[in-house]
């Protein structure tokens, strides 16, 4: 077929996907049950509950925290997490003096093994445009007010390193065990757009 005589794709995106899937299956590039296994893995098994356990362990075990901050990939693997889009991890720590914020201005790089697949806002133009030029304004929109004396560090994931924020442990959680601590840790706190609250 000549290049100037193209049929336009169907306006119904679902139909267009169905067509592509049937073609890729026919060509032997993919297998149907493999697709289901991938969806199962990322929709149900991998998610921010993994990162929350890493955070809770770091809050509970100073030696683990030291290993996590020194070389995150093996420390995260100690809890059984790792793999695609988390092969080379870096964990950055929020303190009373430093607040870290993650972004990927060029695409949508995100640490899948610990946080799952990224939310739409993380992948969309407004966050990617503004997180680097006005991080404090963006944080304020998320309800996080950063004091003037605190240094905001924005990590733009341009290479194949993947980042996760170790949020500050909230006051009043001294008596809590790891499971209770993990339940407090949100996805947004590990991106850096939220703080962890004690309740």
């Amino acid at each position: 077929m000549a290049d100037h005589d193209h049929t336009e794709p169907p306006s119904d995106t679902a139909l267009r996907v169905k067509a592509l899937e049937s073609l890729l299956l026919e060509k032997g590039l993919v297998e149907a049950d493999t697709l289901d296994a991938i969806i199962q893995l990322y929709e149900h098994n991998v998610g921010p509950q993994n990162g929350a356990k890493v955070v809770a362990r770091a809050w509970s075990d100073p030696d683990y925290k030291a290993r996590l901050l020194a070389d995150a990939t093996p420390a995260i693997a100690e809890l059984g997490y790792g793999g695609v889009q988390g092969e080379d991890m870096v964990v950055v720590e929020n303190t009373s003096d430093v607040h870290n914020l993650l972004v990927c201005t060029l695409c949508s790089c995100y640490p899948w093994p610990v946080l799952g697949l990224p939310p739409v806002w993380y992948k969309a133009a407004p966050y990617r445009a503004r997180a680097v030029s006005e991080p404090r304004a963006v944080l304020k929109e998320f309800g996080v007010e950063i004091r003037e004396g605190v240094e905001v560090r924005v990590w733009d994931s341009t290479a194949e390193l993947r980042y996760m924020v170790l949020p500050e442990r909230p006051a009043g959680t001294e008596g809590l065990g790891e499971d209770e601590l993990a339940a407090l840790v949100t996805r947004d706190s590990m991106i850096g757009v939220a703080l962890v609250e004690s309740t």
Binding site: E43, V138, V193
Partner: peptide
């Protein structure tokens, strides 16, 4: 920035299929 409350991993079945493909 427009964060969605309780955002699902995928918003439509075709998103699941594209991701998996």
């Amino acid at each position: 920035v427009n964060p969605e409350t309780d955002e699902p991993v995928f918003h439509a079945d075709w998103e699941r299929r594209v991701f998996a493909l």
